[in-house]
Design a protein around this nucleic acid. Sequence first.
DNA 1: ATATATATACTAGTATACAAGTAGCGCAGC
DNA 2: GCTGCGCTACTTGTATACTAGTATATATAT
Lengths: 234, 234
Amino acid sequence: MPRLTPEAAAFDMHAALEGVAIDRSRSIAPQIYRELRTRIIDNRFPPGTALSETEVARICDVSRTPLRAAIQDLAGDGLIIVKPQVGSVVAPQNEARVREAIFIRAAIEAAIARRLAERGIDEAALAPILAAQEVAAKRDDYRTFFRYDEEFHQLLAQMADVPHAWQMVQSIKAHIDRQRLRLMSSISGRSLRAFEDHVRLLDCIRNGDASGAAAVMRDHINSALENVQTGLKG
Amino acid sequence: MPRLTPEAAAFDMHAALEGVAIDRSRSIAPQIYRELRTRIIDNRFPPGTALSETEVARICDVSRTPLRAAIQDLAGDGLIIVKPQVGSVVAPQNEARVREAIFIRAAIEAAIARRLAERGIDEAALAPILAAQEVAAKRDDYRTFFRYDEEFHQLLAQMADVPHAWQMVQSIKAHIDRQRLRLMSSISGRSLRAFEDHVRLLDCIRNGDASGAAAVMRDHINSALENVQTGLKG
DNA sequence: ATATATATACTAGTATACAAGTAGCGCAGC
DNA sequence: GCTGCGCTACTTGTATACTAGTATATATAT
């Protein structure tokens, strides 16, 4: 086993895996994947945590086979680092990695915005979400706003008809979200700024301003960079 | 087993897997992954081919475990469709999928071009590749040109310092390359046009024209769309 | 005391056995 | 001839046993 960091030494694996419930009538591997992924993103498994396949499998009461499949998938996402014959650890939060994740998300979502501006959209479908966002934003209720923000972006991706692109965004977004929770309430007025971005984005789309829409979306996503500079120590 | 298409019925699995050599001193799973991936992309495993884990494992003389891991990874790439308790097949070549792959690649690489224009690059490193491209392009030698084109784009990604973004491009590019080989020599003058794109791209980067660089790159990648319309039946 | 060899207790990678589910074929009955 | 039930032969999913490699601790020699 790799040397434990002080933080990881105090880590309680049983506590971190509390609430894991497996439905034996469905495939186990994807369920374990989801459970672990959620816990890594919300930092119940802090970066650097050692994950022994045997130990986790025993605690979750499943065999190593589906658990291993989940670990491999998480390694593919870059959330777990597997060192052959040595051990697996939750990937450290690397500033460069987060910045690159934001870069990729901005690239894909800007392209989505561009396409929507070129093709036009059904604004009616977005209206209720946008209204809910406005309420949350004016209350500076970032938690609620964040939920509708997710919906908003997802709906745009659906309208652009690029499901796999959205899947990639979801995958890469894990690296961004993993550090977002730490600071989400720290910056006041953030929701309002984001809401205004959305309004400006829809303006551009409505006017068929493809480059403008892409630029607004790019800046909107890139605003997460502000967190990176202040949020990560390394 | 899923019903066989006429094409797949005549398929010879042993022939398709010829040349698979496993180095038992290294991990087997990634080796199998590479071997299968290569064969799917160059259509030695035509779309729709049924892949039985047991059968392929036996022919490759490995156990199901590492082979299964490879299959799962390929399913993650969208190159194989796994139907639980039914069977796995090589993913059909879907026009929408290819178009979306091009969309994603264009998005990421356009963002790379933009970043390079903002930051500036070391043109000297690109010069030899560009020179080799010019020679191949003027001979209309698409095969050679294609090799240098790959190098060119990879080097740009390296310069932009986004290794994971490039990894994603590589992954998604499989869907594009799978249909490229069929037509690569069909359109004459293609290399020259691509070469001119590269020159214009470097012009924009040199002048710090971020939007221009992004636009050139976007159009450059999107030119692959011309193949899609004529190349796929469905 | 320090450096080096070695034992030990882990790790992930692989092989194999078993379970559960699906599709297609064939036969019985209508 | 046609319909429907059931058997059979596959498939992938899971559990477990085994292999091989690594890091740490311990003992030993210098």
